[in-house]
């Protein structure tokens, strides 16, 4: 029988689908009986999803046109230097 500490150590592997069927079964048995671990797994799933959402939100923000312009200018100069 897994302890709560064991469950927290395997939590990411569970939510990422990296555990064997036997390990998943053991985790599910524990989670069915332990509200604390069930909440912990929920928190870790949310942490995973929020982490992704932050990156997606940054992608939707408009890029700084001046920064892009600076890169393209440097690229142009660099190509001229090579030529």
């Amino acid at each position: 029988m897994l302890s709560c500490k064991d469950v927290t150590e395997r939590a990411s592997d569970l939510i990422d689908g990296n555990l064997s069927a036997w390990d998943v079964l053991q985790m599910r048995l524990h989670l069915a009986m332990c509200k604390g671990c069930d909440a912990f797994i929920g928190q870790l799933r949310m942490t995973r999803d929020v982490t992704r959402s932050v990156a997606e939100a940054e992608t939707r923000q408009s890029a700084d046109a001046a920064d892009i312009e600076a890169i393209l200018c440097q690229l142009h100069e660099s190509k001229q230097g090579d030529g």
Binding site: A39, F40, Q43, D49, V50, S53, V54, E56, A57
Partner: peptide
């Protein structure tokens, strides 16, 4: 630990 009632990815964004 307790469930996070207030937090969603949408709220973060």
């Amino acid at each position: 630990p307790e469930l996070w009632e207030e937090l969603t990815p949408e709220r973060v964004v």
